[in-house]
Design a protein around this nucleic acid. Structure first.
Lengths: 194, 194
DNA sequence: ACGCGCATGTAAGAAGTTACATGATTTC
DNA sequence: GAAATCATGTAACTTCTTACATGCGCGT
């Protein structure tokens, strides 16, 4: 039930479905994703609900664009969502499910391999967020303390990702360490790996 | 595409749909959730696929139970999923969407209120996980280093939640601090709040 | 001529939620 | 007698994914 609200939020300025998909891939992807085939019908639905209005617009290249913008009702609904308190509690982490059943494999070295792979994925993600933050530092005047309010809010989201990933990476290291101790004490042979 | 695999994982021992719902509410809820109305048809689908078999069983109280267990094919599919590497990247965080658009409200004190509310929710969640860990410490012999492999895997999941929440809570504190600085410097009146 | 980026969608199906329907037994 | 727990589901709907269909204009 959040995609409509994310679209409303993105439609601060008028945009086409295609534009919105670009925004998803560039900025929103860090906490949500959506396909064009989901965006187009959702926009139509929101227009029927009265939260958006649309108009056709000629394009420089390619076919006409259908440009949407929020109506006062749409804007009101966005504000209602923002004021309804943090939407927390429905998160789903498939990799924790995998981990929970990993003992089925009966070999803790496989759990270790899993944790090492997970650590690499999370570290890559963190590197990506760090690069974005570094770029902001370089390019945006007044970063981070004197940012205008919209850029400051973006920045808070980025920091959340970094803190959460830092915690998870600590956990990976802790888990790998404990697994090594268990593997080492149950099996006398040494095992080399970075 | 993870619910079938989580059900396969839970069906290490034969269980009914009702039993599985109980397991979801007790253990799985920390990283996944499912309703009975989703579990029952999914079990039927998995049986048709040949991953589960079922038999009716008399119950002490209430109607007959339909007890499922994994077939060799089901077990093989679970192992395939476990070995396919960490399923990461599709996570969705609605509250980061809210935060990103919060500047629409044009008042950073509302962002601050939001962060305080979010902090409280996350802290409550952490307290819950900590209570579970404390109970394990008290009740489970050999905790945490000499656990049997299944309990050790459960424990890793718990630690992940704690580390991730710790990172997020740090972020909340950082954000609230920065917001206070911004609010304080833009508006001279003091503001009391816990 | 071919592919890429722009721009629109539809169709089919899987996954998930909320509400409803039924009925036994046990506990207060 | 009422409420909780055990136990099964169906129906209607929303949400999301994957695959397909169409066509213009620009660069190589």
């Amino acid at each position: 039930m959040s995609l409509p609200h994310i679209l409303l939020g993105l439609l601060r300025e008028p945009a086409s479905g295609y534009d919105l998909k670009t925004a998803f891939d560039e900025h929103i992807r860090h906490f949500w994703s959506a396909e064009l085939s989901q965006i187009y019908p959702t926009l139509k639905r929101l227009e029927k609900k009265g939260w958006l209005s649309s108009r056709a617009e000629a394009s420089d290249r390619g076919p006409d664009r259908v440009v949407y913008e929020t109506t006062p009702e749409g804007r009101q609904e966005l504000v209602r969502w923002l004021r309804s308190g943090p939407a927390v509690g429905a998160e789903r982490f498939a990799y924790l499910g995998q981990l929970a059943f990993m003992d089925e494999l009966g070999d803790e070295r496989q759990t270790r391999d899993f944790m090492v792979a997970l650590r690499a994925r999370l570290a890559a993600w963190r590197a990506e967020l760090e690069a974005i933050e570094a770029e902001h530092f370089r390019a945006v005047p007044g970063f981070p303390d004197r940012l205008p309010t919209d850029a400051f809010h973006d920045h808070l989201g980025l920091r959340m990702g970094l803190h959460s990933l830092a915690g998870k990476l600590e956990w990976c290291d802790e888990a790998i360490e404990r697994l090594d101790r268990r593997i080492g004490s149950s099996e006398p042979e040494a095992r080399e790996e970075g």
